[in-house]
């Protein structure tokens, strides 16, 4: 899966939880889920669950500990899919 495909996939996943449209429009690898997209912390769990469902993977607790940016989310998904 290319980075572009990953970002497109993640964009669809985070959409219901974002509270900042402008940052969402220009979402890229450096976008911060909390600072930029303003996703509330309880909804981070929904993002993790939606990623698991979408890519049919399981993300362990320590794997999502640092998943606060789009880049980090991409790394988690790539690593899991590669297995």
């Amino acid at each position: 899966m290319t980075d572009k495909e990953l970002i497109t996939g993640l964009k669809k996943i985070v959409k219901p939880y974002i509270q900042n449209e402008a940052a969402f429009e220009t979402m890229n690898a450096d976008t911060h889920l909390i600072d930029d997209l303003k996703i509330n912390s309880a909804n981070l769990v929904d993002v993790v669950l939606d990623i698991e469902d979408e890519y049919d993977i399981e993300i362990e607790d320590d794997a999502f500990e640092d998943m606060l940016t789009v880049k980090a989310a991409m790394a988690v998904v790539s690593a899991k899919i590669a297995k």
Partner: peptide
């Protein structure tokens, strides 16, 4: 937490939600 807002934002009864938290 604003309890009314949590009912709009979150479904805590969603499968696996509580297990992650």
């Amino acid at each position: 937490v604003d309890l009314r807002q949590t009912r709009i934002d979150s479904d805590w009864d969603r499968p696996r939600f509580l297990k992650k938290l």
